[in-house]
């Protein structure tokens, strides 16, 4: 049985887990290719116009997969920590996809609420029941998937560049080279290394987020806010770029919270949407790089 896995949204964070699990229970996996123009166009065509760019891209991936698999894993992430959420869009992603795109194969849409072990095993049992009746096999697959997931490491921490910036933002913006126009390469080319929130100490992040009047109830908002504030306070990097997508509800709050802590620390917000022009994007990055260089006294060749 071919099971489609769309390379969108949290794929970059959880693909090891999902792929291992599905493979172990005997599925053949079809993963959609890295985002390209065709996928983006398909996504924009099917998705409601008010949705954010990552959601549109996700629609594109699902649309690419729909004729190429027998069932599709469209995870419904409710939360990954107790009393915390990801984003309302994640709770309703299935409804969006299934109502916007016609002629979909069967969707595996059991909600994932990995706050407690038993909830995760419930998810595994339901998902696995599509392929196998053997519960032991499913549980073994889950254990293996969790173990591999624990060993996998995402994130960047470049060394050996004269400058370093913190690149903060949702995983689906940072790791999708097509929609962010390979920002990492651009920055590296300008002599700037990047560090992402995965390389900031988790305890420090939680500590900073805890200092707010109300700890944000979005897991990733906590991570990004905490990471940004840690970078500002410990001067782990020379500046921060926040990579956000247009009409992201979570970013609209997080960016404002970070801004109130920046002081005179260099901070820039890059917005992505399906119309983002590369030239304007480059100009902004170069200007930011120039500003950082002047600030840190590197390369006074401004003549």
């Amino acid at each position: 049985m071919n099971i489609g896995v769309p390379r969108g949204l949290l794929y970059s964070k959880y693909h090891v887990f999902a792929e291992t699990f599905l493979e172990e229970i005997g599925a053949k996996i079809v993963v959609s290719p890295a985002t390209n123009k065709l996928i983006l166009d398909e996504g924009v065509r099917y998705c409601v116009d008010d949705a954010c760019l990552p959601m549109k891209v996700f629609h594109g991936h699902v649309s690419w997969l729909k004729d190429r698999c027998d069932a599709m894993l469209v995870p419904r992430f409710i939360g990954i920590k107790e009393k915390e959420y990801i984003c309302p869009m994640f709770c309703g992603s299935i409804e969006m996809v299934s109502n916007n795109i016609p002629q979909l194969p069967c969707l595996i849409d059991t909600p994932i609420c990995s706050t407690q072990n038993y909830k995760l095993s419930q998810w595994a049992k339901k998902t696995g029941s599509v392929l196998t009746k053997d519960e032991n096999k499913i549980m073994a697959a889950l254990d293996k998937a969790l173990q591999r997931h624990g060993n996998s490491k995402t994130g960047f921490n470049d060394e050996g560049y004269p400058l370093k910036i913190g690149l903060i933002g949702h995983a689906y913006n940072i790791y999708d080279k097509f929609i962010n126009m390979d920002l990492k390469k651009k920055l590296n080319g300008l002599g700037i290394g990047i560090i992402t929130s995965e390389y900031i100490n988790g305890a420090d992040i939680a500590d900073e987020a805890g200092k707010l009047f109300k700890k944000p109830f979005w897991t990733f908002a906590q991570e990004y806010y905490g990471a940004a504030v840690c970078i500002i306070k410990t001067k782990k990097a020379d500046g921060i770029i926040y990579l956000s997508s247009f009409s992201c509800g979570i970013d609209s709050v997080v960016i404002e919270l970070i801004k109130s802590e920046t002081g005179d620390f260099p901070f820039m917000v890059l917005k992505l949407d399906e119309h983002t022009g590369e030239a304007g994007f480059d100009t902004r990055i170069e200007a930011f790089a120039d500003m950082l260089k002047r600030r840190c006294g590197i390369g006074h060749n401004l003549s």
Partner: peptide, 19 residues
């Protein structure tokens, strides 16, 4: 009034304080 997610309304108080 507040709420605790997942919609943005719950974050209003924090933002209002800062702004």
């Amino acid at each position: 009034t507040g709420s605790c997610g997942p919609c943005r309304f719950g974050e209003y108080c924090e933002l209002l304080m800062k702004i």
